Simulated scan of single mutants.
Amino acid sequence: MTAALGLGSAQFGTDYGISNPRGRVTEDEVRHILQYAADCKILPIDVAFYDGDVERILGRCWPFPSPFKPQIRTQSLDKGLDWIEARLKRSVDHMGLARAHAALVDCPEDLMGAGGADLWRRLEALRGNGMISKIGISAHIDDEPLLLAKRFKPDIMQVPVSILDQRLVEDGTLEALADMGVEVQVRSVFTQGLLFVPREGLPASLQPFGPHLSKLRRIMAEAGTDPLHAALSYVMNLKGVSTVIVGVTSAAELRAIVAASERPKPDLPWSGFALSEDRILDPRLWFLPDDELPQKPASHVIKAA
């Protein structure tokens, strides 16, 4: 069984993606994308408050009644629990809805501190009163998603996984999460389009990885496939994954993704495509000079409630 598709919305509010030469998507195109997504029953919509004015854009562009299942994000715990709750409600209101499908903790570090248990209880209360149906966590690998899931028992855990970043597959995290009954969503499946960028178009910091990316594309071509099909096939057929979040800049791109998702999985040496260097796997580091790269943090210790 393959995973279902979900739609990211960052491109609707910002100039997002290393392979996106057109910048922010126009509202007319957003309407076309959403209509095609609705026609294809692609219903999860991942929404972040920091992606420009994306909440209001969605509210203006999607069909009513909306068939979608929007997922909204928490702001920093530094602003306090009341502010977090008010901002979640505002997100729902901006989208012209009465409720959201899910709320995801956007900064897992908030859960690891002294106020983490209170934050989670507040989200549970919002789930209880019907403003949201599910609660979850959007995590990176260094947030130790499996430990978070064991402590908080989220409905949803969203993590980055791709043909280049197979770390959570190799260490068994994805399967372990699914075995706990957690809905596993994967994002960054195209690494912001990195697989589609020619070697000469890579940022200076990623030039050392150019030969590996070129080799991958050559292997894919020799197997009769392409980066879009290969990257999508890899994540959609991973054991334990329920939803694959993809971002697009046009309805044509979404049509191509849907078509690729319906093709059989190609026969490729999947494990040989993986990389382990944070420099390429974490887009937050792409444009930092070498002397500003963060040191590897020590493992987080999650405090008991």
Rank of each mutant, 00 (worst) to 15 (best):
C107W: 14
W83D: 09
I135P: 14
E170S: 15
R199Y: 00
I137P: 09
V186M: 01
A117N: 15
D46S: 02
A4D: 15
M220H: 03
V47M: 04
D165Q: 10
V301C: 02
S66K: 13
S214A: 12
P297L: 12
I141C: 06
A221P: 02
P65R: 13
D82A: 12
R263I: 05
A260R: 14
E124H: 08
S19C: 13
Q35I: 13
R284A: 15
D226L: 05
M131N: 04
V92S: 05
D278L: 06
A305Q: 04
V47I: 07
K79Y: 10
I245P: 01
I72L: 11
P145E: 05
Q158V: 11
G181K: 04
P70E: 01
L194S: 02
G272T: 01
P198G: 01
D93M: 07
H212V: 03
A100Y: 14
D82K: 11
L97Q: 08
G113L: 11
I245R: 08
G181N: 07
L216S: 08
T225V: 03
Q11Y: 01
R31K: 11
C40S: 15
V30M: 09
L254H: 13
F152W: 13
A149I: 04
S276N: 09
P160A: 07
W62R: 06
L148P: 07
D143L: 06
P283A: 11
D171H: 02
D118I: 03
L238W: 11
S9Q: 04
K69D: 07
I18M: 04
L7N: 02
D278M: 08
V244T: 12
D78S: 07
A256W: 00
A37P: 02
L123Q: 03
P160K: 09
D155N: 08
L77C: 12
R255E: 13
E29M: 14
D51Y: 13
I257N: 00
P44A: 12
V186I: 01
Q207E: 14
D165A: 07
F287S: 01
A298L: 15
I135C: 15
E55H: 03
G59P: 14
L213I: 11
E27D: 14
W270F: 13
G201H: 05
P269A: 10
R279S: 00
G136R: 12
V92F: 01
P203S: 05
E85T: 08
A256G: 02
F190D: 09
I163V: 15
I132S: 00
E292R: 15
V241N: 08
A298S: 15
C61M: 14
A304V: 06
R73P: 02
I302V: 11
V25F: 01
A260D: 15
Q71T: 09
P198T: 03
I72G: 06
S188W: 04
D39V: 02
T74C: 05
E27G: 10
A256R: 05
K265Y: 03
L206S: 05
R255D: 09
F287I: 01
G130F: 02
R22D: 14
V30C: 10
R151W: 04
D226T: 06
L177S: 01
P67F: 03
G59E: 14
Q11A: 07
D171K: 01
I42A: 00
I33R: 08
S205W: 14
R122D: 10
